[in-house]
């Protein structure tokens, strides 16, 4: 419980530092008090990841891999989408796709949804947590059975996220 307050407080203090961006003593002390209060107020909501888990070297490597993959695929997806928009014939093959997922926790599903919505030509629409499937809207519908579709949409990201989440 105390650890949870501390973790939330550290994250809130980071946000405070970025938002105010002044290094006077009053600001820093007031921010510390305020972020402790925020940590106390938000403690009953649930677990928080410890801030220094990022510093574990293997996890940091996995995070860097995820970031680089994201950057490359964001640019690629956007160039292809811009081509789809600007081409006079509008080469769209849109449709709703259902793919299986290996994620089980709320945070995992959320992170998968956000990252895949950003980096490939899909937009997450709905989640079925009982059957472990995600519903996507795809601009270019992938071919093949469920496993091949998942390989094109969310499986690589899920492997990277699982490497980050490993304890």
């Amino acid at each position: 419980m105390i650890l949870r307050v501390l973790y939330t407080g550290v994250w809130a203090y980071a946000v405070w530092l970025v938002i105010t961006w002044t290094a006077t003593a009053e600001q820093l002390i007031f921010g510390a008090v305020l972020s402790l209060l925020v940590g106390l107020a938000l403690a009953p909501l649930g677990d928080v990841a410890a801030p220094w888990r990022v510093l574990d070297p293997r996890r940091a490597v996995a995070l860097a891999t995820l970031l680089v993959t994201c950057a490359v695929r964001i640019v690629r997806a956007n160039v292809s989408l811009a081509h789809r928009i600007l081409a006079p014939s509008r080469p769209l093959r849109s449709g709703m796709v259902v793919v299986p997922t290996t994620m089980r926790t709320d945070a995992g599903i959320g992170a998968t949804g956000l990252v895949t919505s950003l980096i490939v030509d899909n937009q997450i629409v709905d989640v079925d947590t009982d059957r472990h499937v995600l519903q996507y809207h795809a601009v270019a519908v992938p071919e093949g059975d469920d496993q091949q579709k998942a390989e094109q949409i969310n499986a690589p990201i899920e492997r990277l996220l699982a490497r980050i989440d490993r304890r």
Binding site: S94, M96, Q135
Partner: peptide, 8 residues
């Protein structure tokens, strides 16, 4: 013109 609606 959409191709498929797998939910349906």
């Amino acid at each position: 013109g959409s191709v498929v609606d797998e939910v349906q």
